[in-house]
Design a protein around this nucleic acid. Structure first.
Length: 425
RNA sequence: GGAGGAGUGGCAGAGCGGUUGAAUGCACUAGUCUUGAAAACUAGCAUACUUUAACGGGUAUCGGGGGUUCGAAUCCCUCCUCCUCCGCCA
């Protein structure tokens, strides 16, 4: 969530930023927020004055009682009663104003970074790098991953559907082992890059979902356990970032680097067609996430470092990939700058998104109340960043398709110590 | 799930319903002393909002929410968390 300070101090920048997100009424909305906030301030002042008077009277009443001046005390009590009526209406007003302010603020996405290109859809994303040196030469009868999965008995989509429903694949045999191998490989790589490994809870409460911005924005995307009011995590970002809720760091604590593997659960309501075939879009998938808390001055260096980390994973897996800088229209609500990674899944001739690396600047930390004490002792919001490193399901899709041969599916060198087999047969 | 107990500042730990934003100790910061350090001494040390050019002032906060009262850390209700015992269980 943007801070009021940001909105007031950098009004023009915020407006142009929101326009880049195609929020056409940005100026109007911002002006409205400022006027609501003005109202909030004046109401607060009036309320405080009224309460202050009440407090003074109460002290006097106490003294009068001690001096046994009951009559005078009773007169004063009536004055307080009047003041209370005033303050309770003011309080109600203030509550409504604050609620209104909050909903207005929640409707604003993050201000995009200067390098974010204008645009309305994914077609306007900027391809900043394309590395197809590992592009396979597949024969005409190459199979898409869902057929390969069946042929080699790696994934049973029908069984998953039987047990749970569509979009819940069941991995088995070498398919299951490949999952485990990838998870371990990714975690080891993250550890080598200095990230602390975490296994967080896979369900989160409402506060946590709010703090990272899933609520109220993506309410329908999460599975909700109404009995206990808990949500299945859509990404490890939610529980891991919430480690830092209500925290004040020392400046030298940063950067903090945390990684974690979790399954991710997404309802993906409303998506159908070829996009959801096989592993392309599922309700449950595995992902290793990397997260950093960084000093505002260094967060973009950190972002580059994270992008490099993800890129290295893809190079190591010998997958053709490209890196996109998301345009204003495609940029996630909470992000200031996002790089998406896509791998080419050669049999279905499709680019599949496998990672999204973002700098949220202070947008998340504002809601998290994640701050650090700067040199002069002032508390400032830290920057948060995260990225997938990597999301498994689609990586598996690309690996299966791209590495299919007459003899079976070839496992990339780097994974062999993890799978302990060279071929899927 | 049942019975009991507890939740106060960074930590420990006081707190008759009325100068208690909160004693005291530790920790922390600055200073004095010292060649330096330690010790000792002195002072400072919560957060948020609001007001002010500034000094400063005001309001709220003692697990969360609500209530009683002129006045609540202190009384009542409710929820949460932790501890002890019992039950169940990977």
């Amino acid at each position: 969530m943007l801070t009021l300070q940001q909105i007031r101090n950098e009004k023009e920048k915020v407006i142009t930023g929101l326009l880049k997100r195609n929020m056409t009424k940005a100026e109007e909305i911002i002006e409205n927020i400022i006027s609501i906030d003005d109202k909030r301030k004046t109401t607060q002042t009036k309320l405080d004055q009224s309460l202050s008077e009440q407090n003074q009277y109460s002290k006097q009443i106490g003294q009068l009682f001690q001096q046994k001046k009951i009559e005078e005390a009773n007169i004063m009590k009536e004055k307080v009663a009047d003041l209370k009526r005033v303050s309770s209406t003011l309080e109600q007003d203030q509550r409504n104003i604050q609620l209104e302010l909050e909903t207005q603020l929640l409707s604003l996405g993050n201000v995009p970074h200067g390098s974010v290109p204008a645009g309305t859809s994914e077609d306007d994303n900027e391809v900043i790098k394309e590395n197809t040196s590992d592009m396979p030469n597949l024969s005409d009868n190459a199979l898409p991953h869902w057929d390969l999965a069946k042929k080699y008995n790696l994934i049973d989509f029908e069984l998953g559907t039987k047990i749970t429903g569509s979009g819940f694949p069941l991995y088995r045999g070498q398919g299951a082992k490949l999952q485990r191998a990838l998870i371990n490989f990714f975690l080891d790589q993250a550890e080598e890059a200095g990230y602390e490994e975490i296994i967080p809870p896979h369900l989160v409460n409402e506060d946590s979902a709010k703090a990272t911005g899933q609520l109220p924005d993506k309410e329908g995307q999460m599975y909700h356990m109404s009995v206990d009011n808990l949500y299945l995590i859509p990404t490890a970002e939610v529980p891991i970032t919430n480690i830092f809720r209500d925290i004040i760091l020392k400046e030298e604590d940063m950067p903090i680097k945390v990684t974690g593997y979790t399954p991710c659960f997404r309802r993906e309501a409303g998506s159908y067609g070829s996009d959801v075939k096989g592993l392309n879009r599922v309700h449950q998938f595995d992902k290793v996430e990397i997260i950093q808390v960084a000093h505002p001055k260094k967060s973009y260096t950190v972002l580059d470092e994270m992008v490099a980390h993800v890129e290295k994973l893809l190079v190591n897996l010998n997958l053709p990939y490209r890196i996109l800088r998301l345009c204003g229209g495609d940029l996630g609500f909470t992000s200031a700058l996002t790089y998406d990674f896509e791998v080419f899944s050669a049999a279905q001739q499709k680019w599949l998104e496998v990672s999204s690396v973002s700098n949220f600047e202070t947008y998340q930390s504002n809601r998290l109340k994640l701050r650090y004490k700067s040199e002069n002792g002032k508390k400032k919001l830290a920057h948060t960043l995260n990225g997938s490193a990597l999301a498994l399901a689609r990586i598996v899709a690309a690996l299966l398709e791209n590495n299919q041969t007459e003899e079976g599916i070839k496992i990339p060198e780097i994974l062999r110590p993890y799978t302990r087999f060279d071929f899927i047969k």
